[in-house]
């Protein structure tokens, strides 16, 4: 496999793990716009243990999950009293504070970053993505998953049904933080360098968009979202210059055309986001879509029942 594809598979796997981390919070109806903060905690705990303590991989990667999960748990208890925009702001502020602390910490290399001695090849992040996906699919298929979706839909009624809404939210938020931490640990070892500038607010925004545009109703959504928004920009990297050449040739310009700015890809991501919110705000993959695809023959009969019921 070429280095180009190895790079893409690695970042895709890391993004999938990251998206699942945010998905678990979003699945309970909590928008987590602090993803970059949690990924940074995971990345720096793995990097620090590896660089300063000389710990091996099988310690640093689990440590990145554990440290981030515990911090997420401690943070979730007070912050999940907040709802709606307050919660979004709170998680966003958390990420900014984390990054701010790292910049000011000499032990973590400050603005310079930390080199990570141990390198991992692409199979490790891919294994991480598979594990994260299995965990999420499993949880969502259990009674806990049912309760998670109920809390997302209506927290007042869930409470009256005997669901401990706060515990469900805190548990999912913390577990999600752990997965975001894992994505950070994988990132640190895959790129053998961590730099605080990587974990900026734009990253938090992107990962939330992966989840929401992919669809937060089923665990398929984050995977599809992360894959779509990691792979499509790569396709556009080749496609956009060709399109520009084509457009230019319509206006009679021949020969060498300077390739378009990288920013065009983000403009397109923005346009897709706005259009998705207008036309399909529940995301690409919905529960009904999964249901329909997994039971292709049920659909007709269910329509028949509905007609009978209405008649």
């Amino acid at each position: 496999m070429s280095g180009y594809w190895i790079g893409i598979i690695t970042i895709l796997a890391i993004n999938i793990v990251f998206a699942y981390g945010i998905f678990l919070a979003v699945a309970t109806g909590q928008l987590n716009l602090g993803g970059a903060g949690f990924q940074a905690i995971g990345a720096y705990s793995a990097a620090w243990l590896s660089a300063e303590m000389g710990m091996p991989l099988y310690v640093t990667i689990p440590a990145s999950i554990l440290v981030t999960g515990l911090i997420g748990f401690a943070f979730a208890f007070p912050i999940l009293r907040l709802k709606g925009v307050y919660l979004v702001l709170g998680t966003f502020a958390f990420a900014e504070v984390v990054v701010g602390i790292i910049i000011n910490s000499d032990a973590l290399g400050g603005a310079m970053g930390l080199p990570v001695p141990d390198y991992i090849d692409w199979p490790v992040p891919v294994a991480g993505a598979v594990v994260a996906a299995l965990i999420c699919f499993y949880i969502m298929s259990t009674r806990l998953g049912l309760v998670v979706r109920a809390v997302h839909d209506d927290d007042v009624v869930s409470d009256l049904m005997g669901v401990d809404v706060r515990m469900v939210r805190v548990a999912m938020f913390a577990l999600g933080a752990g997965l975001a931490g894992l994505s950070g640990g994988l990132y640190a070892h895959a790129y053998t360098y961590v730099e605080v500038q990587t974990f900026n607010s734009a990253l938090s925004i992107y990962v939330l968009l992966y989840v929401l545009l992919g669809g937060a109703q089923t665990p398929w959504g984050p995977m599809v979202g992360a894959a779509f928004f990691t792979l499509v920009p790569e396709l556009l990297r080749n496609l956009l210059p060709q399109m520009k050449v084509a457009v230019m040739s319509v206006f009679g310009v021949e020969g060498a055309v300077t390739p378009p700015d990288e920013s065009w890809r983000f403009v397109l991501l923005g346009v897709v986001t706005v259009l998705m919110m207008v036309f399909r705000s529940e995301g690409l993959v919905t529960r009904q879509l999964v249901e329909r695809l997994s039971h292709p023959f049920r659909r007709r009969s269910s329509n028949a029942t509905q007609k009978e019921a209405e008649a």
Binding site: R143, L146, V147, R149, A150, H152, D153, D154, V156, V157, S158, M161, G162, V163, Q217, R287, E291
Partner: peptide
């Protein structure tokens, strides 16, 4: 106040919780 994104049976299963 049924859960809009839960199936019929899933809504009833929530009642068992």
């Amino acid at each position: 106040r049924l859960m809009p994104h839960l199936g019929v049976v899933e809504n009833v299963m929530l009642g068992q919780h």
